[in-house]
């Protein structure tokens, strides 16, 4: 089999995942796109391992490791997304703009306030986040 087939397929999958990472708004969809990119890499690893007939089968071993790490990554990533959603009421990545330079000194930022909720999950700042949110339900409003 030509090596070009799996290689090109991996490239295309990678770029599709890339597009997803850059274009999707929901953080979970972004995570899915990351999975696509990881799988493209896995495909490459397997293809080249088979082609090279490596006695140690480093490619396949590495693929297994990558799959493991991807599973761990998705677990952590989802936990973070959940936390963000619980604190902010949203999981849209383009609204998490605390790092923006607004041109003013530390003051009210666009959204979420300076309360850096993802760092300190326990902070109680319910008022700041509910106003402009389509998703009013909050984890800690009780």
């Amino acid at each position: 089999m030509h090596l070009a087939y799996p290689a090109v397929l991996a490239v295309l999958l990678f770029c599709v995942g890339l597009y997803g990472v850059l274009a999707r708004r929901n953080a979970i969809l972004v995570l899915m796109s990351v999975e696509l990119m990881l799988n493209a890499v896995n495909l490459n690893l397997v293809a080249f391992d088979v082609w090279l007939r490596d006695t140690l089968h480093a490619g396949q071993a590495l693929t297994l490791f990558t799959i493991t790490i991807a599973a761990a990554e998705i677990g952590i990533g989802l936990a973070i997304v959940l936390l963000v959603h619980r604190n902010r009421g949203t999981s849209d990545v383009d609204q998490l703009t605390d790092l923006a330079d607004t041109g003013t000194e530390p003051g009210p930022v666009h959204f979420g306030g300076p309360g850096s909720a993802s760092i300190a999950p326990g902070t109680d700042n319910p008022d700041e986040t509910t106003a402009d949110q389509a998703l009013p339900a909050r984890g800690q409003t009780a």
Binding site: V11, L12, F14, C15, V16, L18, Y19, V21, L22, A23, R24, R25, N26, L29, D92, V93, D94
Partner: peptide, 17 residues
């Protein structure tokens, strides 16, 4: 579902591809 960054993302992805 898609953010405003879509067209930039498309350009980058196509160029990379």
């Amino acid at each position: 579902a898609d953010s405003g960054n879509r067209w930039v993302a498309l350009a980058v992805a196509v160029a990379a591809a």
